[in-house]
């Protein structure tokens, strides 16, 4: 970006032919650029959040290159080694080992794969279901709307964790099941948001005039409703992804998530819990990974919400 300085408007040498409208347009572009730059600078949180999150994504993709050991490799002679900076620890196992002698660091790195898979796919499924059902409910109205919203409200009324736990216990431990559980049980939230937006825009009178000049439903959908949904849906999706990573770890903690052979943060917490007093690192370090990821997503989500919410922007807060 070049830092083209604006001409001082009151300089005596300003040629009388300077086009004020052009001047105006340039001012607008300059303001938009400085707005973007200031927003990034002002809200360091957004950049920090995005960076943290990218670290986790990077770890998940390149896990085999980052991990120091095979995360499944058991070695009972090396079990329960403390982290490197404690007495008896070594840099070969920087975060120590668990009760079966597996390397904690490598398991945490690989654990990000489960968390991110569940987070991404779970939200993708929830978002897709929610978007479709929300659009249908909002457009169809009447009985269809009642049935869809009745179902959604039912899911939203029961303690979320309760449904998840019961279903997980019934369908059994597998990654696919976990993804499906979260994807389906989280859909009602997206249904509600989508439908709300459809109704808001439908009632705005704006659409009525669009209909009056002969625009079809598809037109209205693509020109008015979807663009308005992008902001809220992306923001909520970010927070929900973070929530799903939480819940997956929680399920693992109860022994209801992916099979115990797969290294996941929840499974590690569960396994370490019984040795909490003697080898605290086993149960607590995976927690830092969860916090790290959640922090990234929440900071980024807050930032996204600020950027995408035009109401906040206008207030200049």
């Amino acid at each position: 970006m070049t830092s083209e300085q604006p001409q001082p408007a009151s300089g005596p040498d300003l040629s009388p032919s300077a086009d004020p409208l052009l001047e105006d347009e340039r001012g607008r572009v300059r303001r938009a650029l400085s707005y973007g730059a200031k927003l990034l600078l002002r809200d360091k949180g957004g950049m920090i959040g995005l960076s943290l999150f990218m670290v986790v994504v990077f770890a998940a993709i390149f896990a085999p290159y980052i991990a120091l050991h095979n995360p499944l490799q058991q070695d009972l002679t090396r079990s329960r080694q403390p982290p490197a900076w404690r007495d008896g620890g070594s840099w070969e196992y920087p975060l120590g080992t668990d009760s079966l002698g597996r390397d904690m660091f490598s398991r945490i790195v690989y654990g990000s794969r489960v968390s991110l898979t569940v987070g991404f796919l779970g939200v993708a499924i929830a978002l897709s279901i929610g978007l479709v059902l929300g659009l249908v409910a909002g457009f169809a109205g009447g009985r269809v709307d009642n049935v869809i919203m009745g179902g959604a409200n039912l899911f939203l009324a029961v303690p979320y964790l309760l449904i998840v736990v019961v279903v997980a216990a019934v369908v059994g431990r597998s990654l696919v099941n976990v993804v499906l559980i979260f994807g389906i049980t989280d859909a009602p939230l997206f249904v509600r948001i989508t439908r709300g937006e459809v109704l808001r825009i439908r009632n705005s009178g704006y659409v009525e005039s669009a209909v009056a000049i002969g625009a079809g439903r598809a037109r209205i959908l693509f020109d008015h409703i979807l663009p308005n949904l992008v902001g809220p849906l992306i923001t909520v999706a970010t927070f929900e992804m973070s929530a799903m990573i939480f819940y997956e770890a929680g399920l693992g903690f109860l022994g209801l998530s992916v099979p115990p052979t797969i290294p996941s943060w929840g499974n590690m917490l569960a396994a370490g819990r019984q040795y909490l007093a003697s080898t605290p690192w086993v149960a607590t370090y995976p927690g830092f990974a969860i916090i790290f990821t959640a922090l990234g997503m929440n900071l980024f989500g807050d930032w996204l919400r600020d950027v995408l919410d035009p109401r906040l922007r206008r207030k200049g807060r």
Binding site: A249, R273, L276, T284, G287, I291, A294
Partner: peptide
């Protein structure tokens, strides 16, 4: 506000036990 949203309760429970009980 951020801590409440990013620290899992099952984890903080373990930390509390470790610190305040053990």
């Amino acid at each position: 506000g951020l801590i409440g949203q990013t620290v899992p309760n099952f984890w903080i429970a373990l930390i509390f036990i470790l610190v305040f009980s053990v």
